[in-house]
Design a protein around this nucleic acid. Structure first.
Lengths: 117, 117
DNA sequence: CAGGATCCTATACGATACTG
DNA sequence: CAGTATCGTATAGGATCCTG
């Protein structure tokens, strides 16, 4: 593919941007966790544990912490007995909604196409 | 969150769909590889090796094979000396374009917001 | 050039048990 | 309930060398 130099730069910039996204979102669980919180608006630890098929509490705890650090998720401790913790998306986290929806749609199509046949 | 039973089922279905997508796309490299091919339309092995920052030939080879199996990528051996191999997205792979674009945009925003500040 | 083979390491992840 | 601690395994992944 022949490209003008500034075209090539554009491609590189875009590749970098994708990498930046993936640095935050990649891993086996992150997207699923975000989806869970996103679809239910607010979600407790044990609920997410149930939503995300196969995840262990250790992993969930670790991943949520990372998402919090990256300011995608907000953690609220409720004053109940025993303690309850609620997770919700931050405003920045909410900007992922489009991507979640796209991945949901694509997953359904993919299942039809490849798995379902 | 109180939901009607059929609402809950909807959420579960969506969660499953996201999982299906991630089964194919997750991992450190897949999305970047697809982006590279997507942005350039056709791309040779060594080009992708250059586009995707930090990937080793071993990994690239492995990931491309998986993408081929999942029918996202088409591999064409060109009759040159020495051999050249071109990769392009299949029609099914092209349906990921929206997601790639969204991830690109989101990555740029995220950089501004978190990394760049 | 494209990629396979080999070897090795890091870390991602799971299972289980424990605590405020 | 929402985690943390500990331990063990599996896999992801890097480096290097080799070949048609």
């Amino acid at each position: 593919m022949q490209c003008e130099p500034h075209q090539i730069d554009k491609h590189k910039k875009k590749m970098m941007a994708v990498q930046d996204s993936m640095d935050v979102l990649s891993g086996k669980w992150k997207i699923s966790i975000i989806s869970s919180i996103c679809y239910y608006n607010k979600r407790r630890f044990s609920d997410i544990l149930n939503d995300v098929d196969g995840i262990s509490n250790r992993m969930l705890s670790k991943e949520l912490k990372e998402l919090e650090i990256n300011q995608l998720v907000k953690r609220t401790v409720l004053d109940t007995h025993p303690v309850t913790v609620e997770y919700e998306l931050t405003e920045h986290g909410l900007t992922l909604k489009t991507i979640i929806n796209n991945l949901t749609d694509w997953g359904m199509e993919h299942r039809k196409k490849i798995i379902g046949v």
